[in-house]
């Protein structure tokens, strides 16, 4: 994929607009954050881009192709991992391939190669309940990646984790992203998370929700622990807070 574009998206519910005239774009290999308070319509936009919801106005394009209202083009991952409790990790992760018509054994073979890279080795035959929250999110991300290696939408993927596990997952995530170069649109309400992970941040606010500003985080990656307490980090954070409040 080269480019995912959402143009002038408006969605209303019972006569009132939830999000209004939202335009965003995501370039190849980028991690872009959609940042805003709860209820601003982040997930609504997310549903539009994933094709689960038809917008009242606007279109979604992937590589110049109109994919508005069409599911199956971009993969997504939610805060809850949605791993099926009755499937082993490898079967959970290879599910997108099976859905696409791949034989179960073949799908397992393809999937098994990624376990090392995603830090999941040894969990293949386990059931989800035997894994920690962080490991489950890793498995969910691998499933997302196998669903589409072009572009992934992540809706608050780490927000259910405790803050230490979260930091570990951030580092892990940037590490994995360096290798697989998955274009990612990440939804979050966590300002720190947005600054640490993204290349660009769209700050959403208001009612109906609009894009208030696009903030570019011009820092080398992967960003280490020191970045979190650095001068420039604070500067970004102060700036974003001033937009939101």
């Amino acid at each position: 994929m080269d480019k995912l574009i959402a143009k002038n998206i408006t969605v209303s519910y019972e006569g009132a607009n939830i999000i209004e005239d939202i335009s965003i774009e995501l370039n190849k290999g980028e991690i872009v954050c959609l940042l805003g308070v709860s209820g601003v319509g982040k997930t609504t936009l997310f549903n539009v881009i994933s094709g689960l919801l038809n917008p009242d106005e606007g279109i979604v394009e992937l590589d110049g192709r109109n994919i508005t209202g069409k599911a199956g083009n971009v993969s997504y991952m939610l805060q809850k991992d949605m791993l099926m409790p009755y499937k082993t990790i490898i079967d959970n992760v290879s599910l997108p391939l099976v859905i696409r018509g791949e034989k179960k054994s073949k799908a397992r073979d393809i999937t098994a190669k990624y376990f090392q890279e995603f830090g999941l080795e040894g969990t293949e035959k386990k059931y989800p309940f035997q894994l920690s929250g962080g490991m489950r999110q890793r498995a969910a991300l691998l499933r997302t990646y196998l669903f589409s290696d072009q572009v992934a939408l992540l809706d608050e993927p780490f927000s259910a984790l405790d803050s230490i596990t979260k930091s570990v997952m951030h580092e892990w995530y940037l590490q994995v992203m360096k290798q697989i170069r998955l274009s990612t649109l990440l939804i979050t309400h966590d300002i720190d998370e947005a600054i640490i992970l993204s290349d660009r941040i769209y700050v959403m606010a208001g009612k109906p929700g609009r894009i208030k500003e696009e903030v570019i985080i011009d820092e080398p990656k992967p960003r280490d622990k020191d970045f979190k307490v650095s001068e420039s980090f604070i500067k970004y954070k102060r700036h974003i807070l001033s937009i939101l409040m």
Binding site: S50, G51, L52, A71, G72, S75, Y76, L78, K80, M82, M84, L95, P96, I99, R100, F147
Partner: peptide, 14 residues
């Protein structure tokens, strides 16, 4: 059944 799981599978093209 959790409707989100069904949505996820539908999004995968199931």
């Amino acid at each position: 059944v959790d409707p989100d799981s069904i949505n996820l599978l539908k999004a995968m093209g199931a």
